[in-house]
Design a protein around this nucleic acid. Structure first.
Lengths: 235, 235
DNA sequence: CGGGGCCTTGAACGTCGTCAAGCGATGTGG
DNA sequence: CCACATCGCTTGACGACGTTCAAGGCCCCG
């Protein structure tokens, strides 16, 4: 089912079988995007929401000075722009990092779901708010953490999120980003990100090469990064 | 009515009169907090939501190294922790900046509202997502803007939000923060925030003194700060 | 009068950004 | 098949933005 992965990562509140069926039935169609393709442009009116089935997606903003800030990274099972349902347009853009497959939910179908089931509504709402909690954690990262720690924290977050959907094992996982992407996510320059990656490797905490992360010392990394997964609301 | 201010700043989607009445009726009671009092501690289970009626509120996180990051500022009419309804607990704390008056909505009452009206649900959901959009704008600020620009941007945002609820006139408004608070919101040290405030004053853009902001040149400030109010979803 | 917030300023330092060059891998067209 | 461009990564040198440490002023309040 299209919604399997989403439902395994979002179990609160518990859904009745008919809610699950209704959610699944709300999928209008699927679509694919090529790597690095823009999926949603900021400020364009939207009429459907995107559930990520396969591949990686980024949300980002470009600044007039030519800088680019990545606001969120999405993995399979994430409801990438469910927030476009109440907002109707987004103040940022969405792009595919890899080849991507998505399921599309028309806004009227989402509205029908909310009319039908308060429990399902709460689940969907909650999923958008977990994204918001991750946004806030990123504020803490860029606002209050040093460059190395920022990168370490990002690796921790992505490990937990990917591990949960079976996309990490033995503390290794694919993170199909360039060093430039990493620097755009953490508010650093590519040069400095590169140096900090070397430092993390030399410290024996984590190694990043060719879009792949290998965690060398999970406990050490977690404590070094000040990582507490509470903000991911894993329950 | 308790919800007047909230409803004037949240007009999309348009509510039926009975929805307005239902929302107003969902208020269980009001409460007051003294300045600098902690209103919600992180990770504590919550059973009600807080609508800010009077005063200023901050959401923040403390880091182990003793730094403090302000995640959001709230003005009257903001539904400060509506997101606690789907999340049940928060990953940050909430504190009063001034003496504060709030209206409290028990979670079961909110659930009843969502069961009753999809339109009202969309409005409430939307309001939490506008907060999330502001969170993302803050990511851009701390991640991609220089210190002076960050402060300028914050003043722009607060001016627009306060002006909308009649709490700013002639480009002057109360912003009851210390310079330390400003630095905690922008990810700077208090010393550097102080110097950047002087720079903004000397540039003739904006002056901040005694918790009061005076915008000296609104157009100049807006363009200097790269401020585009789209992320506030004012419509 | 003393103490404590809050603000202000100076001086020295360091993290991080900028500029620049070079490397290896990949891909493409002559 | 090789020349050449491109992309991503790496490293060095230098400079700047922002931090740290320190001291002093102002004002309110006990």
């Amino acid at each position: 089912m299209y919604t399997d992965l989403f439902l395994t990562t979002h179990r609160t509140p518990a859904l009745a079988p008919e809610d699950v069926a209704a959610l699944e039935a709300a999928v209008a169609r699927t679509a694919t995007f090529a790597a690095r393709q823009i999926m949603v442009r900021q400020q364009v009116p939207l009429t459907q929401c995107t559930l990520l089935l396969e591949g990686f997606v980024e949300r980002y903003r470009d600044t007039p000075e030519g800088r680019r800030q990545i606001l969120a990274l999405h993995v399979p099972g994430d409801f990438v722009d469910l927030h476009s349902y109440p907002l109707k347009r987004l103040e940022h853009s969405v792009a595919a990092l890899t080849e991507v497959k998505v399921a599309l939910f028309p806004h009227p179908a989402i509205r029908a779901l909310t009319a039908q089931s308060p429990t399902l509504t709460e689940l969907l709402w909650r999923s958008t708010l977990i994204d918001a909690a991750i946004n806030r954690e990123w504020i803490v990262s860029v606002g209050a953490r040093s460059a190395v720690v920022r990168l370490a924290h990002l690796f921790c977050e992505m490990y937990v999120r990917l591990n949960r959907i079976g996309m990490a094992d033995q503390h290794r996982f694919a993170l199909p980003l360039t060093q430039v992407d990493l620097s755009d996510a953490t508010g650093l320059t590519a040069v400095h990100a590169n140096r900090m990656l070397r430092e993390l490797r030399e410290k024996g905490l984590v190694a990043f090469r060719h879009g792949e992360v290998e965690i060398l010392d999970w406990d050490g990394l977690r404590s070094f990064a000040d990582f507490d997964p509470g903000y991911l609301f894993l329950d």
